[in-house]
Write a protein that binds this DNA or RNA. Structure first.
Lengths: 338, 338
DNA sequence: CGAGCATGCACAATCGGTTGTGCATGGCAT
DNA sequence: ATGCCATGCACAACCGATTGTGCATGCTCG
């Protein structure tokens, strides 16, 4: 460490002075274009070892400004409060890193205003692409990106103004429902009602899951009463309250429930415990995955969305941007615990 | 939208042309320094409305370059796989946003190499401050930051080269242990052994929690056998295996367990279910918080670390950087479910 | 021996804001 | 009429990297 003690960071100009050469040469060496620029190997290695020993680190802002490429890729996410979104963030990050991109992730609490604000910030930082995960209003953001000439993609929930990668919710729900019905059949309780609870009515994924639920029942010759479908929002408290209300009208607990998320499951389980019900009697299917929950309940089947494949698809779309904004890629989730 | 259809983003130069004024004036108006620069109100509002209608968004890279301040604040995190780290990320982000800073969070999988690499990237993006959460090697990163003249802080796990904000692990563990022992006493099983399981032996937090565990037992006149302390690492599989091994030597399950994290709890619960044990008989204390797990088990007490206060303390340290790198701030966690 | 080419590097413009400084204009007091 | 100050804005340097271009040197070949 020979550098002067001034607190300023080292620049290519400093390195040029130290190596007795020009800044442009230093730049070429440090960003790997030196062979193309016919810098001698000797000078190159001198500069490289100098950069090493002095702890040089390129100023990404300056680079981004000049290159007109930030090297940043953005994602907006509702929350980190479940395994699904957490692992989306994590895989997004590591896949970005693998490609030499820097990932920035912003939580927007399922709030359209925060979504917009986050998107605006990301565009200000000149992200090269923006992935909107589970956005309540994906099209507004897609519009903003389009106006800035930035590619955008939807993940988890589809939009109409940018290509989307989502789970095959209908098929996942169909399979989960069949798994539930099979369990019921094994126990000779095929005709018991199954309660579908959680999620948002207007939400694309919830609609699809309800459709898959009904379809599976139809396939084994069962009709589905509308009173057994309760899209009461995702929040734990909402689910708990909805179940209370449901139970007011009848004496006996449903033998099985299709719960639309782990956060809803939390409310359900809490409510049942509070009322002294024995949980293990109930067959649960949850469209979400949480290994700790799975460990606790012996008859809890869960849908694990294929996050790795979804993220892979996202990056494929980033590599070769499709022209059709309506493109919808559906990834098959796995059923755990059957 | 009068702007030309060229895909290039609008700059202050474009706005200056449109408003028939100079770039410096546009800049002053847009960053709020126009009064100080005696720009007329009339011209200012003209420029502002133009910027609005044309959808101007400042290039943060250019701003950061000139101002020599990125407006970015970084955090490195082991994982997002539990509620604790997730909420740390979330609160960090919203608190940063409240202060006009842009938060970037990077997961490093408890891997010192990845930690370094992430820190290097963050420094390259000229973060104004770096918070190292649960870092396996916080001092190396603190060193890197110091060399770049960037402030750094440790969170969750302390370091010796930068101020640290952590939970009061010993006191939290002491209280949790007392809660466990009280439950045992209520059931007239005060003398039953309690198993401490999970965590890393070398890890500061684990050491403190073990100390708190022993101290609580001592306070009620109980000795602690070393064979009942199993810091087998955090991973679920490790905990599951450690419990198997422990059980090989004895016939009966411990009446109560102090589990060092939800991830360890996952392995324990899975192992017990596999072996057909009835979970509800066991009193669990877990040094971690997960509302879904809490809903499932009626006798699971959990330590909820006070993330909000911890993040507040972190930002206080950012606002007024202390000179002493050994400063250690301990925040009291809450015991849930007693 | 001179043309021609390869080699090895330096110069300078540029990316888009920020900010110290300077200049023209007009009003007011002397 | 002259000096002085406030007003309102423009100029230009600068942040640190990137990159098109140009120039000096040395070597080869006819």
């Amino acid at each position: 460490m020979v550098s002067d003690s001034s607190s300023k960071r080292l620049t290519i100009y400093d390195l040029a002075r130290l190596a007795e050469t020009s800044p442009s040469t230093v730049s070429a060496v440090l960003n790997g274009t030196w062979q193309r620029r016919r810098i001698s190997k000797k000078l190159a290695s001198k500069i490289l070892s100098l950069a090493q020993s002095e702890g040089y680190s390129a100023n990404m802002q300056a680079r981004a400004l000049r290159r007109e490429r930030s090297g940043i890729i953005g994602m907006i996410l509702p929350l980190y409060d479940n395994r699904y979104f957490s692992s989306i963030a994590q895989h997004f990050e590591s896949e970005a890193r693998r490609r030499g991109l820097f990932a920035i992730v912003s939580c927007t609490n399922r709030d359209p205003k925060q979504e917009c604000e986050a998107a605006r910030m990301m565009l200000a930082y000149r992200v090269e692409c923006l992935v909107c995960t589970g956005a309540t209003d994906p099209d507004t953001i897609a519009q903003m990106c389009a106006e800035s000439g930035v590619q955008s993609l939807n993940l988890d929930l589809p939009g109409s103004k940018a290509p989307s990668v989502i789970s095959n919710n209908r098929e996942g729900a169909r399979q989960l429902t069949h798994a539930i019905l099979n369990r019921l059949a094994e126990e000779k309780r095929s005709d018991d009602p199954v309660l579908f609870i959680g999620g948002r009515d207007g939400d694309h994924n919830t609609r699809e899951r309800i459709a898959g639920f009904k379809q599976a029942r139809e396939e084994v010759g069962l009709a589905t009463a509308e009173e057994n479908i309760l899209p009461c929002d995702y929040a734990a408290d909402k689910a708990q309250a909805a179940l209370e209300t449901y139970m007011c009208k009848r004496s006996t607990l449903p033998s099985a429930m299709f719960v639309n998320s782990t956060i809803s499951l939390e409310g359900i389980v809490r409510g049942l415990q509070l009322n002294g019900y024995y949980l293990d009697d109930i067959i649960f299917g949850c469209f979400d995955w949480d290994p700790l929950a799975a460990a606790f309940h012996p008859r809890l089947m869960m849908v694990r969305q294929n996050v790795i494949e979804m993220i892979d698809r996202v990056f494929e779309l980033i590599d070769t941007p499709p022209q059709d904004p309506h493109l919808l890629i559906e990834v098959q989730p796995d059923i755990m615990g059957v």
